[in-house]
Design a protein around this nucleic acid. Structure first.
Length: 559
RNA sequence: UGGGGCGUCGCCAAGUGGUAAGGCAGUGGAUUUUGAUUCCACCAUACGGAGGUUCGAAUCCUCCCGCCCCAGCCA
């Protein structure tokens, strides 16, 4: 009897089922997976699904996961992305150890295998133009036509291919093609291009090569070289699998990996295509790849989303082959779940309204003790200054409150969290009729927040001392797109004009201002916030990661 | 109309012939110095549709319908 791997959740998805079955059948000594990004952009939450799957399987089944850059197209790839991708994978909490690879590490081997294919009569150099090749490929319903160069001799093919390698021809002059079947129902088998001429600088191999292998000629072989057992990719590569297998079958590769496909992640109110993300940045619709509204890993990080929340999300959505669109609310739930347990509580007033406690002695200041986390005594306490002049949230006051409004209103008594009960006695307005200040009284007997006579209040509000709190800029984020299913083609039409709201006059606890911590805090009753990198010595900037659930707002929304 | 896939609750998603897991959302209630959290309850006689096989079908067979991917010298 073999013990069940304790960490593997057998049956959680079809890929893990396959892995488990392969292990039970003793097909492999160890499971080896890989995450194979092309370094041509920043990673986003869709990649996180793949990362979580590949690294997760390796972890759960006691194997390893390689990080391999699929750098076969030097015209699109940059060192900047090679660096950012590694940083993002690490931030997500995964470690490839020594297993960092590049498809370009295998260029020499790949080239030799290509010559081997030519010698076996399984590949040929085609002199047709790109246009001619396209026309001869046929259509979805009509078979293709053989290239007039398809039956060249091995010697001629070898000579031409070597001259391609020797940079004797310009871009596009010739390609190396596999000799398979121009009439195949699977277009990927209609003599796919294996090598193309590209006179370009490669971030790793520099000017050494002037021909580069295509994805199809590089991927499976790279998997085989690294001993990958389960090569997991997304659905659109399903029709490439026959080619993947064909190449591994014809070539003297050291191992025989298998490809499995799953559905990529889609999220409501979100677009994840590289093209859209790039245009969002280039077009200035967002502040950059790490704009907190971006679904990039860098954006999530800057927004304050903890990596554990991303991992939790990936785990919850599962892995299957059905195309689907996950409700972004699922991600938000995961973020709140993690943050609720980890974030320390503080107070901040986003839209301040001045309150003067008329019966509180002028000049008196008290240090009120507040807990840092209601469910975790170990998080300790802190002291918050209380005085005669305070700020409360504008939304917490209504001059003419509807029935279910329990917060401050003329004559109503509420609790200031940890401090005292106060009652609103008078509303001060400016010439325009706007409420600018509240005159209140407090009950000294309620210090700490409880009335000795046992009387209750229906609301507890957060507050800050006017003179002790510090000013801050707070950035509130809403979905980048106003439409749950944004149009990827004409995405600008679906952009949410309210995706960013900046509050310039917010106030935060002195304690918050003094800290340079990048930990996410909960500003009580508001949500989770994190200090932004735009903060300077005299300007504090905070990003709202996510708001708290708000049953009251929902109630009001009902009408 | 070629080839490859997929269709189970509003959204994800288990289920692999034995009588529909779970999560998110939603609804109702309890607790609460965050209208937060936590807790309890409710939430698919039904598995794209129609036939068939079977004592028994979401699971097997047939036909039909719908959706996605493929005609880059991108990945």
């Amino acid at each position: 009897m073999t013990a069940e791997p304790t960490t593997a959740e057998a049956g959680r998805d079809f890929i893990r089922d396959i892995v488990q079955a392969d292990l039970d059948a003793k097909k492999h000594r160890a499971i080896v997976t890989r995450f194979p990004p092309e370094p041509n952009g920043y990673l986003h939450i869709g990649h996180a699904k793949s990362i979580g799957l590949n690294f997760g399987i390796a972890q759960e089944f006691g194997g390893r996961c390689h990080l391999r850059f699929d750098d076969t197209n030097p015209t699109r790839e940059e060192q900047e992305f090679i660096d950012s991708i590694q940083a993002d994978v690490r931030w997500l909490g995964y470690d490839w150890g020594k297993n960092l690879f590049f498809a370009s590490d295998y260029f020499e081997q790949l080239y030799e295998w290509a010559e081997g294919l030519i010698r076996a009569g399984l590949a040929y150099v085609d002199d047709q133009s790109q246009e001619e090749i396209r026309l001869a490929r046929g259509t979805l319903t009509e078979p293709g036509k053989n290239s007039p160069f398809r039956d060249r001799s091995v010697e001629e093919n070898l000579g031409l291919f070597r001259r391609m390698k020797a940079a004797e021809f310009p871009n596009g002059a010739r390609v190396l093609r596999a000799r398979i079947d121009m009439a195949s129902g699977n277009i990927n088998l209609r003599d796919p291009v294996l090598y193309r001429i590209l006179h370009a600088h490669h971030p790793r191999t520099g000017e050494k090569w002037s021909i580069y292998p295509s994805y199809d000629f590089a991927h499976g072989q790279s998997d085989a070289i690294e001993g990958i057992t389960h090569s997991i990719c997304t659905l659109e590569f399903e029709d490439h699998r026959p080619l993947y297998d064909w190449l591994l079958d014809k070539l003297p590769v050291p191992s025989k990996p298998h490809q499995y496909e799953f559905a990529r992640l889609n999220l409501t109110y979100t677009l994840l295509s590289k093209r859209v993300l790039t245009e969002l940045v280039r077009g200035g619709h967002v502040a950059g790849w790490d704009d907190p509204r971006m679904p990039t890993i860098a954006g999530l990080r800057r927004r304050g989303v903890p990596p554990a929340a991303v991992r939790e999300f990936i785990k919850r959505i599962g892995v299957a082959k059905a195309n689907s669109v996950v409700d972004v609310g699922m991600l938000e739930f995961c973020i709140r779940e993690v943050l609720n347990q980890t974030a320390q509580r503080r107070m901040a007033v986003l839209r301040p309204l001045k309150v003067v406690i008329e019966n509180y002695p002028e000049g008196k200041v008290e240090e009120i003790e507040a807990v840092n986390h209601p469910d975790d005594p170990a998080a300790g306490t802190r002291r918050v200054a209380f005085g005669r002049e305070l700020y409360v949230e504008r939304d917490d006051f209504m001059e003419n409150p509807p029935k279910k409004f329990f917060r401050l209103s003329p004559g109503n008594e509420v609790r200031l969290r940890y401090a005292y009960f106060i009652t609103c006695r008078e509303v001060v307005k400016n010439a325009a009729g706007e409420v600018v200040e509240l005159r209140c009284t407090y009950d000294p007997a309620t210090r700490g927040g409880n009335a000795p006579d046992g009387r209750k209040v229906k609301a507890t509000m957060h507050w800050l001392s006017a003179s002790h709190s510090k000013p801050a800029e707070i950035r509130l984020y809403n979905p980048l797109f106003a439409n749950p299913g944004p149009d990827a083609v004409n995405f600008t039409a679906d952009l949410n004009p309210q995706s960013l709201e900046i509050l310039m006059d917010a106030r935060v606890e002195a304690d918050v201002a003094a800290s340079h911590s990048l930990d996410v805090m909960q500003f009580e009753r508001q949500g989770y916030f994190v200090r932004d990198k735009d903060s300077t010595a005299d300007r504090l900037v905070f990003n709202r990661t996510i708001g708290l659930r708000d049953a009251f707002a929902k109630e009001v929304g009902k009408g």
